[in-house]
């Protein structure tokens, strides 16, 4: 299960005083952020923790559409390298947060042990700020297309219950995809499409062979444990 969230620290709504005076008390628990480096400012810590919670919520919604976004119930436990987990009850969501200049990007992959993650971040141009939703979709498709070696026209994004998913032309099923934009940044994360696409292509070949030979369809595909980071800035 995949989720991502991006925060532009330079956006006015990310500034220290932009939030309601009770925001931090409502959203965070006292223990969150204690293990983070003291080099981070209060504002950076606020949005590091928030992005991790939001990314975990997006991943959790793929399991259950009825999950409630109660930020305080998504408890962030990060080490000094900004890797760790978000806990929601007994469920653990592995998370990695990257902070680069003004950009905070959190990626959750609940299935981290069996599949890699492809993710990317891009700064928007002034013209692109007019329609960041469209830009993040095109950015994700271009990045994933490049990873798979297929044309963008072979890919499309569909939304089911407001949850985006990537569909490869001629393929059954979908690849989990998470999109996010805030301020001047757009980001995405998806299950490594090479793994999913390879599995699907293998299944299609197996089904076609079976149809010809009347053998039972099968697919033999190994799922390497690797994470791909596609920072495309």
């Amino acid at each position: 299960m995949i989720g991502n969230d991006i925060v532009d620290l330079s956006d006015p709504e990310s500034s220290r005083d932009a939030c309601h005076s009770r925001f931090d008390r409502r959203v965070f628990r006292a223990e969150e952020g204690r293990s983070l480096s003291t080099d981070y400012s209060d504002v950076q810590i606020r949005w590091i923790l928030w992005s991790a919670k939001e990314a975990a919520y997006k991943a959790a919604r793929r399991v259950s559409a009825g999950v409630v976004f109660s930020p305080a119930r998504f408890v962030v436990d990060l080490d000094r390298s900004l890797c760790g987990a978000v806990w929601c009850g007994t469920r653990r969501w592995p998370v990695r947060v990257r902070i680069d200049g003004d950009c905070v990007h959190a990626v959750v992959n609940g299935d981290e042990t069996t599949a890699g993650t492809l993710s990317g971040v891009r700064r928007l141009t002034a013209a692109e700020l007019r329609d960041p939703s469209e830009v993040v979709r095109r950015f994700a498709l271009a990045s994933i297309g490049a990873e798979l070696g297929v044309a963008i026209s072979e890919l499309r994004i569909e939304k089911v219950d407001r949850i985006p998913q990537l569909v490869l032309a001629g393929s059954v099923g979908h690849v989990e995809l998470s999109l996010s934009h805030h301020g001047a940044y757009a980001g995405f994360a998806c299950r490594n499409p090479r793994i999913d696409a390879a599995a699907r292509i293998s299944r299609r070949i197996a089904v076609r062979k079976a149809a010809r030979s009347h053998d039972a369809p099968h697919a033999s595909i190994s799922y390497p444990s690797r994470a791909v980071q596609g920072d495309l800035r």
Partner: peptide
Amino acid sequence: DDLKVNSARLVDVVLE
């Protein structure tokens, strides 16, 4: 979806 209020700002809205 329509007003494009983001989720963090929604917390502020609720507090208000």
